[in-house]
Amino acid sequence: MCWGVYGKVLEVHGERAYVDFGGVVEEVVSVVDELVPGDYVVVHAGMIISKLSEEEFLGSFKYIYEMAKKLVENGELSKRELEKMDEVVKRWTTKDRW
């Protein structure tokens, strides 16, 4: 259930908003509070169902990284795996690297 697509809010007019999906702009309805241009949102069937949190964006990724560290400490995962992840972390957690 529930195909959801990410986009960036361009304009807000009451309950309606224009969202940029990357080369494609659509008018949608919103059911979220305090929507402002620049917000990233999830759109389902022509409606914004949720805002996306930039802060939380890497949350689950950090979770897996911490787990990898722990597994390496316990000797359950090879250090090489962690080093490989380190590289990815460095590359992806710095915002200006995008």
Binding site: V31, L52, S53, S60
Partner: peptide, 14 residues
């Protein structure tokens, strides 16, 4: 896991 979109309470308005 989907913390970037989901909260514990959900979308109260909706």
């Amino acid at each position: 896991e989907y913390t970037r979109a989901v909260s514990w309470e959900g979308n109260v308005l909706a």
